[in-house]
Amino acid sequence: MIQTIAFYLFATLVIASGALTILARNPVHSVLWLILAFFNAAGLMVLVGAEFIAMLLVIVYVGAVAVLFLFVVMMLDIDFSEMRAGFGRYLPFGVLLVVVLAAEIIFAVGAWSAGGIGLGAATSPTPEGMSNIQALGTLLYTRYLYIFEAAGLVLLVAMIGAIVLTHRTRGGVRAQNIRRQNQRRPQDAVRNVVDQPSGEGVTL
C-alpha cells in the first residue's frame, strides 16, 4: 500500500517539477525544479529496486546540476549583490524544497523497506543472490561490451572536439623549456666586466 502511494507521489512530483522547470521564468528557480525532478526520479528507481541507479541519479545528476547551476549564475548577467539581497526572498523557496526532499527520503526509505513495488512483468528480473551493482557490471562487461566500448569512443570524440575547438598555440608566450635551461652554461649567461670605468653604465 505504502509503495503505491509513494509511487504516485513521486510520479506526480516528477511530472509537476519537470513542467515547472520549463515554465519557471527565473533560471535559478528552473534549476532548483530540475533538481527536484531528478530527486523524484531517483525515488522511483528506489521503488522498483534499482538502488544503484537511484544513487547514480542523485550523485551524478544532482551533483552535476549543482555545478551547472554555478555556470548559469556565472554566465548569465546576474548582479551578485542583488543575488545576496535576494537571499531572503529565495529562502522560503529553498526551505520548502529542503523539507520536501527530506520528507521524501524518509518516505522512500520506508516504502523500500516495505519491499519495493512489484512490477507486473519485468522483462529482465534482477538475478538471485546478486547486488544491483554486480548485476549491472556483469551486463556492461559481457552482453553490452560492444556498446560500452563505443560509449568510450563517444567520450574520446567529445574530448578531441573540445581541444580542437578551443586550444590554440599563442605566440609570445615564455613557456619554460627545461632542456634549454639545463644546457645553459655559466659563460653564456655571465660576463665578467674587468675594465669597467666608473661612472658609466655597463653595456651588455
Binding site: A150, V157, A158
Partner: peptide
C-alpha cells in the same frame, strides 16, 4: 542501443567538423 550510440558518435564528430574553421 547500438543505433543510438552509433548515431551520437557520428553526430558528435560532425558537430566539431562543422565548426572546424573556428
Amino acid at each position: 542501443l547500438t543505433l543510438y550510440v552509433g548515431l551520437e558518435l557520428q553526430s558528435l564528430a560532425a558537430y566539431v567538423l562543422a565548426s572546424f574553421m573556428r
